[in-house]
Design a binder for these strands. Structure first.
Lengths: 241, 241
DNA sequence: CGATATCCTTGATTCTCGTCAAACCGGCGA
DNA sequence: TCGCCGGTTTGACGAGAATCAAGGATATCG
């Protein structure tokens, strides 16, 4: 412990944070090395299995977290069980809403997820001291709002085929944010049922549309989860753009 | 001009702001009287007709605004013309996104709208000086995000009948935020076509569902726009709650 | 190795909602 | 007063997605 502390102090950046995306694109980018050090004293990393509930619908959380890797799904449910996934979060997104109680949204690990979590109180104190941190949170919230509204267009106005193509495109662009080429290969972070809940469709319809995209050589699928997109332009045409 | 300035100084609150909702529930609540005065020097009020474009899809805006009264609709459009309304804004919401360009969302007056607008630069300077102002913006953005996600559930998982009931309920609660009783009366702020674009339906389906709600005595409609809801509980049952 | 479970695909049928078309209604100007 | 006009309602029909029901594929476990 003492040794680790010394290491940290020497390099001036906490070891835990050195390779972390949150320090660049995420909220931690707002912190000085000293503040990072201070926060990292209270932060803990953990890895959770797919299906783990990270934030309960009503369950008051005692901590916030940054996503280090993996995909988190945010969903809402109606009293009769109908479900809608209202957002996906990727590294280095911030999980939790300072100064707010949750609003009927539950967060669940879609894949294996690594998070770096801190106590509620520590974050809220640092926010009060550092306007820059709040600015980062506003930035992320605006991005989430844009994404939510994009998805509303998908949910309200696209056909089943366009919806499924839109989903594949969404994952492609988030899995490789700065992909320049026109082809990508990746694993779907969730099951057909989850995809259906994200698109406002049934599992069967999702399956049929995937089959159709495959038949038209827009994608190839290996082992149900592994997707190969030879031509992103063609896929985005199928998504309605 | 000199006289007005003196008046303002005497009362310590700019006349324009004295009766304004934004000073209580809106972003201006973050400002001291002096700051309010400073901002009000640059602010102008105007009234626009239904259909007026307030923020263009790509059009870079030079100013921000608070909504004083009326309803603003935010919408997105696909290249082939399919349209989706992604949000409604009411007084005292803040219009515009400091430090961000617009994201393919256009804002249009749904009803007659009164706004109080300020130059972009003035707001951005004040935000930098006043963390509290940014905090208010974060609050509003989080609220909009919650509303967007609620609506995603509506778009993705509700039936046409539930959607229309949800819309009536949304307007009822926003027109009378703190209505205690179980009955309300109000005017719809938009046409059947707009309602359809908000719900991801066609005009005809909206009309049919309204007819059904009327036939079942859940609502009464006068002159196409005027709605009477005798029992909000019954309406919210129809909305899927 | 076969048995079971889970997830996914495919097929047949049903039903909700979209499309197309006509009629209705209140307002307005000629 | 009439006829026109935009917004709305209503009807007939069809397409697209949901539902119901089997039938594969893959992995896990005895």
């Amino acid at each position: 412990m003492d040794i680790q502390r010394k290491d940290v102090h020497n390099s001036n950046i906490p070891v835990l944070c050195q390779a972390c995306e949150s320090r660049h694109r995420g909220v931690c980018g707002a912190l000085t090395n000293d503040q990072l050090l201070q926060l990292s004293q209270h932060s803990t990393r953990r890895t959770v299995e797919p299906g783990t509930e990270l934030v309960g619908e009503s369950l008051q959380t005692k901590s916030y977290a940054n996503i280090i890797s993996g995909v988190v799904k945010l969903s809402k449910m109606m009293s009769d069980g109908r479900q809608q996934i209202v957002g996906l979060q990727f590294a280095p997104d911030f999980l939790g809403r300072p100064f707010r109680q949750e609003n009927g949204v539950s967060a669940e690990a879609a894949t294996e997820v690594k998070v770096c979590s801190f106590p509620k109180a520590a974050i809220e104190r640092m926010i009060r001291e550092m306007p820059e941190l709040e600015h980062k949170l506003l930035e992320q919230t605006l991005t989430e709002l844009d994404e939510a509204r994009d998805w509303m267009l998908t949910l309200g106005r696209k056909t089943a085929g366009e919806k499924v193509a839109s989903f594949l495109l969404l994952i492609a662009t988030h899995a490789f944010p700065d992909n320049e080429s026109d082809s990508v290969t990746y694993d779907l972070p969730m099951s057909r049922t989850d995809i259906a809940d994200f698109l406002g469709l049934t599992m069967e319809t999702v399956s049929r549309q995937l089959t159709k995209l495959r038949a038209d050589n827009v994608i190839r699928i290996v082992n149900n989860r592994h997707v190969i997109v030879p031509d992103l332009t063609r896929l985005s045409e199928r998504a309605g753009f």
